[in-house]
Nucleic acid binder design. Structure first.
Lengths: 157, 157
DNA sequence: ATTTAAATGGAAATGATTTTCATTAACAAA
DNA sequence: TTTGTTAATGAAAATCATTTCCATTTAAAT
């Protein structure tokens, strides 16, 4: 049974130390927020949640930690077009299921969907393979987003 | 034969006027740069090219015009993760062929690819249909990007 | 307990994009 | 063509998410 469900060293500690990073209170808090949230959050969202428990931790630390997490592949960073990045745990890290995003270009609402994901993933892997051979890239990730007008915004127009 | 290849009113004039927008020298210049460039450019890239011919046109106008063009669907706006948006003519507007992007997460180099596009598009359309029904979105667009390390950056690591 | 480099916070800097506002220009109407 | 209305414009200032700086704190190896 994997660690990190309750007490004890969390699942990411090893990964962190292995890369020469230290485990700190702030980092614990940030990971905990991300794990609990299980949906995309902005740096400021995370800051506020962390701040409620550890007021000493600053926004700068949030950004610095997120950068590390993204580089380690533990967290995914998204741009939904409203000028601030969003973060969420990567698949496999724990809770989060692989999903893609459906974004309203008017109100910026974001819907996570998992429908059709299997077909998408299958094709993506095939494409990934072809691309990495042809262009000599080591592909590590992909992004799929759909844009349009949501229910509400459709009516207003 | 479509207009806008040499002299005469360009293909987008009607579209522009129809939406209540005026055709101005600056807008002509911006569209011309976009049409000639046929690859993603930042607002500043466009500004510099336009500025070379019409020094009177400011960066503000570039941003304002790009916003209109994106809203009209004539231009696509991308985020490659280096902090500045890139713009390119939408498919069908003219020159540009539908393609997707392969981005080096290290040096931010971007490769446009058209390989596998047909398969991708086919799947996307199917997914789009399913999504718009299930979530009641009017889907107008999609984004696919692959991330990884390019040739050069792979070696350096 | 000691040591040392990594991590931190807070303030200042950055830098792309937006907003403001007084002026200019597009173009519909006469 | 001249005129009137209103959108479009440039320059400068404002915004605002994210980064950088630097003096101080702290994780964790010894």
């Amino acid at each position: 049974m994997p660690r990190g469900n309750g007490r004890g060293p969390a699942w990411w500690h090893g990964r962190f130390r292995g890369c020469g990073y230290r485990v700190t209170v702030g980092r614990e808090a940030i990971l905990e927020v991300l794990t609990k949230a299980d949906k995309h959050l902005s740096a400021e969202d995370i800051y506020m949640k962390v701040h409620a428990v550890y007021p000493a931790i600053g926004l700068t630390t949030i950004y610095r930690t997120l950068e590390i997490l993204v580089n380690l592949g533990l967290v995914l960073k998204f741009d939904f077009g409203d000028g601030r990045a969003r973060y969420e745990l990567a698949e496999g890290s724990k809770r989060s299921t692989h999903h893609h995003h459906l974004i309203c270009t008017n109100c910026k609402r974001v819907v996570d969907y998992t429908d059709f994901i299997d077909d998408e993933i299958e094709l993506l892997h095939r494409t990934e393979k072809g691309l990495s051979e042809k262009y000599n890239f080591a592909i590590t990730n992909h992004l799929i987003q759909f844009y349009g007008l949501c229910d509400r915004c459709k009516k207003k127009k």
